[in-house]
Design a protein around this nucleic acid. Sequence first.
DNA 1: TAGATTGTTAATCGATTAACAATC
DNA 2: TAGATTGTTAATCGATTAACAATC
Lengths: 211, 211
Amino acid sequence: MYQKKISMNVIRRLPKYHSYLIELMERGVVKVSSRELSEITGFTASQIRQDLNNFGGFGKQGSGYEVELLFKEISDILGLNMSYKTIIIGAGNLGQAIANYPGFKKYALDIKALFDVNPKLIGMKIHSLDVLDIDTISDYIKDNNIEIAIICTPKEAVKKVARILEKTNIKGIWNFAPVDFTVNADIKVESVNLTDSLFVLSYMISQEEKN
Amino acid sequence: MYQKKISMNVIRRLPKYHSYLIELMERGVVKVSSRELSEITGFTASQIRQDLNNFGGFGKQGSGYEVELLFKEISDILGLNMSYKTIIIGAGNLGQAIANYPGFKKYALDIKALFDVNPKLIGMKIHSLDVLDIDTISDYIKDNNIEIAIICTPKEAVKKVARILEKTNIKGIWNFAPVDFTVNADIKVESVNLTDSLFVLSYMISQEEKN
DNA sequence: TAGATTGTTAATCGATTAACAATC
DNA sequence: TAGATTGTTAATCGATTAACAATC
């Protein structure tokens, strides 16, 4: 079946709906209209209806959307019912922070181990997770059917890591290093570039000061 | 003077230009055309010229852009010549990782202290930075002319923190907690929502699997 | 000067918003 | 049934791309 191409703008709003629907459920709200969702999310009611109708008609004319149903549908669309076997590459401060981040376990991520080049870190445990030698990573991925790799290395190491990951059957890379890279198209890459984000904040502040 | 409103899409591409220009400088490249920049960045040459001309005519017809000059202009636009006195709120794993993150010192961020509620953390040092009691934060911000606050607390604490920050003269908030909030408009907010980002990766992977 | 490439206007494309028929 | 709100088509708006005159 032909699936209409859905834009990244739409996809990036889905987690927002997910989050606000949790809030509504916690408040015991059972039904919600696109107009009410608009007030909560800041998106227009029209946009919300358009977004949701990319995936199906989840509402009922006259009464709106059933909160719990809509939440489940969006969770499904986002694949949050799945669990992906995951490794973290780079066991420094950031890698450790991601390993311990609350909530990831609940959604999608099943973190199995960390990898590093530093002999001082290799062999350590980070909250019950082993830090393993980066040189063993290819075999580890194959033997343990790892599906997601999280890159928390310095940027100098990224190209080498990308080269290694490309040869595995990994499905996705979550990249925290402030550098772009390419891998073959069937590996999905999502980057969180802290430096870029900081620069945008810096821009906004310095603009404000010019007034 | 009236400054034409520049869209966030343009702003979020500026750090990419910044980063690729560093790469060119490291390779000793002196001049670059929009066509060459297009090959490197993946943006179209037309878009690159449009983007840059929002801020001024930095190129020369016939020969292109002088790499070092363009780099300096973009650094200026992003406010990277400034240094902002900064605190980190929340001294857990993520707060500590941000405090130690390489490269922030070089650009814009002058981190002065961390704050936490946890008595076990208060009084500690994180890489020569004091962890202070969250209850002293308003006075600290005022006394030290703090300009940026980085939120690394659990999401439950965010609304309270936002309420406090709103009453200060802070200029910007860099928010790492996975929750949205509003403050008055002259405080700029940039959020890095790790959960949202993970969900997008999860979406992309689960879509791929449906083929 | 001829060739190249910018700066900028015009055309196209895509995303958002508005409108309204369908229907609960 | 009357009122409300969705699902969806049409209109608008904004962003990207194309085209080309200006100019180095």
